[in-house]
Nucleic acid binder design. Structure first.
Length: 196
DNA sequence: CGGCTGATGATCT
DNA sequence: GATCATCAGCCGG
């Protein structure tokens, strides 16, 4: 398991969203380590009305404007946290939403946090992923390319076959093909029709 | 299964 | 005051 450096990450949101499929996200918490293979992402681009950065920088979305490879965390529907990766150069607001992982380490910790047993229910969907990985608002702004509580890595596993679809659950710019996923994975959200 | 709905609060207008 | 990158639970077929 090799930590990813910033230089290895594409600094364009669509390319980064594709690149992250099959990579690892690792959470080192006081209770222990949980990690997973990223199997589903969505890109939110500069000039994209669905992107939180669309109306300019605010206190909430400021990490979207940081150099690519920082964690942008926010709360959705008052209760779910979403984990994103800032995607472009300093000053350009764009991000990649992590929507699902295939759990690799810390199954029981994830089960305890989620309150469910089934492996495929632990981190399928962005809210579930964040809960399983104990993503808190305190992680907003964390550098994913540096040692710390949350980081990304490559385990050298073969490149997955990547499927593409429109993004899920948004109300603007609904026709853009900016959702990426590992084809056929049981750990992808959105139902059978959305994993081919 | 698929479809619908209530929960719930930060954020911005 | 409206909006919202979600989820679990419930209902019907």
């Amino acid at each position: 398991m090799n930590p990813l450096t910033r230089a290895e990450l594409p600094s364009e949101a669509t390319a980064l969203a594709r690149f992250l499929i099959g990579k690892l996200i690792v959470r080192d918490a006081p209770e222990g380590r949980t990690s997973g293979r990223i199997v589903e992402t969505e890109a939110y681009l500069p000039g994209d009305a669905a992107c939180h950065a669309f109306r300019g920088e605010t206190p909430r979305n400021r990490t979207l404007f940081r150099q690519h490879g920082h964690a942008y965390v926010y709360i959705s529907y008052g209760m779910h946290r979403m984990l994103n990766v800032s995607a472009e150069d300093e000053g350009i607001g764009a991000g990649v939403l992590l929507r699902a992982i295939e759990p690799l380490e810390g199954f029981d910790l994830m089960r305890a946090r989620r309150g469910v047993e089934r492996l495929t229910d632990l981190a399928r969907g962005p809210g579930r992923l964040a809960e399983a990985m104990a993503i808190t608002m305190g992680l907003d702004g964390d550098d994913l390319c540096a040692p710390g509580p949350l980081w990304i890595a490559d385990d050298g596993s073969p490149a997955a076959e990547i499927g593409v679809s429109v993004r899920i659950g948004i109300t603007k710019e609904t026709d853009r093909p900016l959702r990426f996923f590992e084809r056929g994975s049981r750990f992808v959200s959105g139902g059978k029709a959305l994993n081919v």
